[in-house]
Design a protein around this nucleic acid. Structure first.
Length: 554
RNA sequence: CGGGGUGUGGCGCAGCCUGGUAGCGCGCUCCGUUCGGGUCGGAGAGGUCCCCAGUUCGAAUCUGGGCACCCCGACCA
């Protein structure tokens, strides 16, 4: 296939929009792949849509290869379906009514709809089933950002498995997990599988696929030695050992006027910051004030706190703190506090400096067990300098985009929607489900984040909008056409730049657009019947006779 | 939702403080020139200055209200 640039809608820009921050956002807009319609709302222009479709096709092939069956479920969804599972309360839902006042919603995902169809499964003989579709998702995100990185409407490949027992469900999960690795490999995107946040749900199988990127919302923590990888929200790091002062027989009160932060405290007392403790009172959703206690050099991980408390919480207000501790933030500690104390594992042994629950005073030599009772849990965010929990190697931190998510949800949706089957032993059981999502738009953005240089995008061949970018310079039109015909005959998709532009502009656009192979037909070609074939990534160039082109690149 | 910022031809920006004919670069159209890394010269087209209200003889500019978009945070099935 030959596409002529002179006739395409391919609006390349010299400057990126001023408000673009992420590299993928800038390059995709500049190179004419996408345009913004509203906050978090994007059109894919012809070139961008070609890439999107290529990503889709790779996903489709890999899903079909594991026996998945493609569906198409509607976007507009009766609200009753979501009421049945209790998810109609989610704040990100866009609600819609028809002329008769009937209520609908635009789904964030399609568990309900697919489980609805799964109700037609009646016998264990029909299981397992693995279904998927590519369909629009709408989410009223509080803050879309970064071009395609976080949007309010996007196409998702979402798959749903239904099994008769846990063993089968795990097998389905595993099939999808392996397929995901193949998908990301083929798309040329580096993505790491990590155990994701389980939060209140706890215990379920849930993995994220994180693609390192210049901008993104998840922090990937990895061990320098390879194996260990986790999302920072759940990653465990081994913190450095603190320099503890000599132990005291009992806590000793010291006056610390105006000292309200651990940093100031460590400096005032001339001790290691890691020898202090930080008191972070929170109020739980059921109204209790709980003291979360971490080491002075650490940050509290909200998701770990959530897992440990098994209930949501927020920072306590000044009034609540005053009522519960009789002191203000900055002088708080566990000694003498009669509420629940949940402390980080780093504080289980040794003596630390803590607030005295008396404004302007702290206690030295506070020891868990002896001076206060606490429940211990991993509460800290891993930080630079931590060691790997498995091998002791150094941990590295990268910002990433979540490009895929696989999740085993058991009977969570089958229960609400009453999706059961009759097992071999004659008993009725709920279907056990899993869901598996990939956002092709995010994959596309992640590839651009990972593969670019100062001149533009560098697509892998597998998802490039065209196979070859053929630049035809003035005077070489005839041989350019011959080259295009040769490439087309070899089954390649050719972007033929036949515009009446100067060479520099055509080359600049070719670099920006990022098709991996560039072929140039120019004056020289008239003499030797050859064209330049240039590799976008390496810049390597060689001359190939037009007659050999198809064979060389096909 | 909290904090910060921006709205002026397609894109990037100046003008606003101190009210008085709306400007610059790129892009676009036409003519010439040039032609293997964003030529050069000339002539043009194109703007409800985000919206509404107010102040004023007069508002892009001052005041009030609203809207949109971006960044940080909160949130994130």
């Amino acid at each position: 296939m030959i596409a002529r640039a002179s006739q395409l809608f391919l609006p390349t820009l010299r400057d990126a929009p001023a408000d673009a921050e992420a590299v993928s956002h800038k390059l995709l807009v500049r190179a004419g792949y996408i345009r913004q319609v509203g906050a978090g709302l994007w059109s894919f222009l012809p070139l961008g849509w070609r890439v999107h479709r290529k990503v889709e096709q790779i996903i489709r092939e890999e899903m079909d290869a594991i026996g998945a069956q493609e569906f198409l479920a509607p976007v507009l969804t009766p609200i009753e379906l979501w009421e049945a599972t209790g998810r109609d309360k989610i704040t990100e839902i866009f609600h819609v009514t028809d002329r008769a006042g009937r209520r609908f919603m635009l789904p964030l995902t399609h568990e309900e709809t697919f489980t609805f169809h799964a109700r037609e499964l009646q016998s264990y003989r029909e299981l397992p089933q693995l279904w998927y579709h590519f369909q629009t998702k709408d989410r009223d995100e509080p803050r879309p950002r970064g071009g395609l990185l976080r949007v309010r409407e996007f196409i998702m490949k979402d798959a749903y498995s239904f099994d008769r027992d846990e063993e089968g469900a795990y097998a389905s999960f595993e099939r999808n997990r392996v397929a995901y690795h193949r998908i990301f490999d083929r798309c040329g995107v580096e993505a790491h599988e990590v155990k994701a946040e389980s939060g209140i749900m706890g215990g379920e199988l849930t993995y994220d696929f994180l693609a390192p990127s210049g901008s993104g919302e998840n922090i990937l923590v990895r061990c320098e030695n390879g194996d260990y990888a986790a999302d920072a929200e759940v990653a465990r790091g081994i913190p450095r050992a603190p320099e503890l002062p000599p132990a005291l027989a009992a806590p000793e009160e010291i006056e610390t006027p105006g000292v309200t932060t651990c940093e100031a405290l460590a400096e005032f007392l001339d001790v290691d910051l890691a020898a202090t403790s930080k008191a972070m009172p929170v109020t739980t959703e059921d109204g209790r004030v709980v003291l979360a206690l971490i080491r002075g050099d650490d940050r509290l991980s909200e998701s770990k706190l959530l897992s440990a408390l098994k209930i949501g919480s927020r920072p306590a207000t000044d009034d609540e703190i005053r009522a519960a501790f009789g002191a203000s933030g900055g002088s708080l500690g566990p000694v003498g506090f009669d509420g629940e104390v949940i402390a980080d594992l780093t504080l289980a042994e040794g003596q630390f400096v803590a607030g005295a629950n008396k404004d302007g005073f702290h206690l030295r030599g506070v020891e868990a067990g002896r001076d206060y009772e606490a429940r211990f849990a991993d509460l800290r965010e891993p930080i630079e300098g931590d060691r790997c929990p498995e091998c002791g190697g150094a941990l590295t931190f990268q910002t990433t985009i979540e490009v895929g998510h696989i999740f085993y949800f058991a009977d969570k949706y089958s229960k609400g929607l009453d999706a059961t089957f009759l097992d071999e032993d004659g008993t009725e059981k709920p279907l056990l489900g899993g869901s598996y999502g990939i956002g092709p738009g995010r994959v596309l953005a992640a590839v651009v984040e990972q593969r670019n240089d100062e001149n533009g995008i560098i697509w892998p061949r597998s998802i490039a909008p065209y196979d070859v970018h053929l630049v035809v310079l003035k005077g070489a039109e005839e041989i350019g056409e011959q080259a295009a015909a040769a490439l087309d005959a070899a089954g390649l998709d050719v972007l033929l730049d036949d515009r009446d532009q100067r060479p520099g502009e055509k080359f600049a656009d070719a670099d920006l657009i990022g098709i991996p192979v560039r072929v140039t037909a120019g004056k020289k070609s008239l003499e030797d019947g050859a064209v330049d074939v240039r590799d976008r990534a390496t810049g390597e160039e060689r001359r190939v006779n037009v007659a050999e082109l198809g064979k060389e690149l096909g």
